[in-house]
Structures are given as structure tokens and as C-alpha cells.
């Protein structure tokens, strides 16, 4: 049970990073491989603003400013780089974002160094126990924030004008243009939002341990989560994250450690082979 709770919180973080993937996929049918590094950068920005030996702002304020800053970073990345390859094949974006991820890692590494740092949070080390199961407050906050954020984003896509316009833009750019959707502006906005979501994920990740510039590699695992859930489905991303988060520690307990590392990818391959569109599939048969 203890494993499951810890896994649940871990899975929420995967799910949050996966949300960032899904956001961008939903709006522009592209995949941002730098999402994990955006999460890392967000966590470091929050750390730089909030830690007492750096700028020393109060925790809440620091996180808020970090979220806004990273919204700007995501938006800026779209404006400066991604927009220029508009209309090119998809894999151009894949390679581009991988390179971007490396750049983010370099920036974070040269500003904050490569030694692990700890983010100071108000709820570190507090534990609650209920029925023999110990839950740390950080885990509880993680789970709560994730659920709230997923619901909010889902509502955004389902009910608001901008959300619907973003979906339209992803389904057929040309047609979206014709009916008056500002495709470019919406793309920039969605990139910004995914930067903000990545920051939240990064901060939550940082509450559970030290961070260093290489935690961005977690993005690959989160990516597996997004694929398991079906790219393009927000609840699916969360579910995928939870599956991975729970399976990983259990596999680590009862099987050799290497198998635990492999397990997310094995699940992902199985899902890809049996249900190529993911669990919440949106792929329909191709018609010519």
C-alpha cells in the first residue's frame, strides 16, 4: 500500500509532464521533446527565486513568478523558433525540440551548476498517517494539484472558445484559418500554457527530492505515459502517468532493478502494438 501511495504521487508528476506533451499535441499535432527540460528549467527558476540563499522570495510568490516566467519561455520558444518551421514535416519539430532540450539543460547547468540542489518548501518533511499508511504532505499536495490542473485543462479544451479553436487548428490548419482561427497566436498561447504546466510539475517534483539539470530526462518516461494514455487525451495522460508511477516501484520490489527501469517502456510498447492510438484512442481508420 505504501508503495502504491508513493507511486501515485510519482505518477502524478509523470502525468503532469505528460499533460504538457498532450497540450502541444492537441493544439499543433507536434511533440515537444523538450517538455522534460522545460520542467527542469521551471523547477530551477522557482528555486532561484525562492531559496533563501538565492533571491529569497516567499514560496508562493516564487512559484507564481516562475509559472509566469516559464509561460513566457514557452511562448517565446514558439514565437522565435517553432514558428519558423511551420509547414515542415513533423520530425523536424522532434529534432528541433530535442536540441532545444539540450540547450535548456546547458543554460540551467551553467547558471545553477550540476550538483543537486534542494528546493525549500513549506511542506517538506511533514507526514500524515491514516490507518497505518504514512503519507507525506508533499505527496498529498502533488496529487491534489494534479487532479485540479487536469480537470481545469480538460474544461478549457472542452468548453472555452480558445480551447475549441486550438482543437480545430490541430485537426486541419488550413480549414481553421479559413473559418478565422488565429492558428499562430493559439499555438504560441498553448506553448506558453505547457511551459506553465511544466513549471508546476517541476516544483512538485522538487518538493520530493533534490533536482539537477539532468532530471529533464524524466521527460522520456512522461512521454511513455502520454503515449500509453493516447496522445491527445488529457485524462489519458494522467492515467498513463499513474500506471507508470504505480508499476515502477512494484516492479522494482519484486524484480531486478533493470526490469523496473524497462517496465514503462515495455508497457508502452505493448500498448502501441495492441492499441496503436493509446488507451483513450482518437485514431480512426484512414480513408483516402
Amino acid at each position: 500500500m505504501q508503495l502504491v501511495i508513493g507511486g501515485l504521487a510519482n505518477g502524478c508528476i509523470y502525468g503532469l509532464v505528460a499533460l504538457g506533451f498532450v497540450l502541444i499535441y492537441k493544439a499543433s499535432e507536434g511533440v515537444n521533446f523538450a517538455q522534460g527540460d522545460m520542467m527542469m528549467l521551471g523547477a530551477f527558476v522557482a528555486l532561484g527565486l525562492g531559496n533563501s540563499d538565492q533571491l529569497g522570495l516567499p514560496f508562493g510568490l516564487a512559484v507564481l513568478i516562475a509559472v509566469f516566467l516559464m509561460f513566457g519561455v514557452g511562448w517565446g520558444v514558439e514565437r522565435v523558433v517553432v514558428r519558423r518551421i511551420f509547414g515542415q514535416p513533423q520530425f523536424a519539430l522532434v529534432i528541433l525540440t530535442i536540441a532545444l532540450g539540450f540547450s535548456f539543460r546547458f543554460v540551467a547547468g551553467s547558471v545553477w551548476g550540476y550538483t543537486p540542489l534542494v528546493l525549500e518548501t513549506p511542506f517538506a518533511g511533514t507526514n500524515l498517517s491514516a490507518g497505518g499508511v504514512v503519507i507525506s504532505l508533499a505527496d498529498l499536495v502533488t496529487i491534489g494539484v494534479t487532479v485540479a490542473l487536469t480537470a481545469a485543462l480538460w474544461a478549457f479544451f472542452a468548453f472555452t472558445r480558445i480551447g475549441l479553436a486550438a482543437q480545430a487548428a490541430s485537426q486541419n490548419q488550413m480549414a481553421a484559418y479559413i473559418v478565422g482561427v488565429p492558428v499562430m497566436r493559439i499555438n504560441a498561447l498553448i506553448w506558453g500554457v505547457s511551459g506553465a504546466v511544466a513549471t508546476v510539475a517541476g516544483v512538485l517534483f522538487a518538493t520530493r527530492g533534490a533536482i539537477d539539470p539532468n532530471i529533464g530526462l524524466l521527460g522520456i518516461k512522461a512521454f511513455a505515459a502520454a503515449v500509453i494514455g493516447g496522445l491527445g487525451s488529457l485524462p489519458g495522460a494522467l492515467l498513463g502517468g499513474l500506471i507508470i508511477g504505480i508499476v515502477e516501484p512494484i516492479a522494482g520490489r519484486y524484480a531486478p532493478g533493470e526490469l523496473a527501469i524497462m517496465s514503462p517502456y515495455i508497457i508502452m510498447l505493448l500498448v502501441l502494438v495492441t492499441r496503436p492510438g493509446g488507451l483513450f484512442s482518437q485514431v480512426q481508420a484512414k480513408k483516402v
Binding site: 499535432e29 509547414g87 490548419q173 485514431v283
Partner: peptide, 13 residues
């Protein structure tokens, strides 16, 4: 000059 292609979804072709 490169030909630009407008993106259409892979999900609902």
C-alpha cells in the same frame, strides 16, 4: 523554394 504543407490531423484522416 520549399513547398509548405498545411497540417492535417493524423487522428482523423
Amino acid at each position: 523554394r520549399r513547398q509548405k504543407s498545411y497540417l492535417k490531423t493524423e487522428r482523423m484522416k
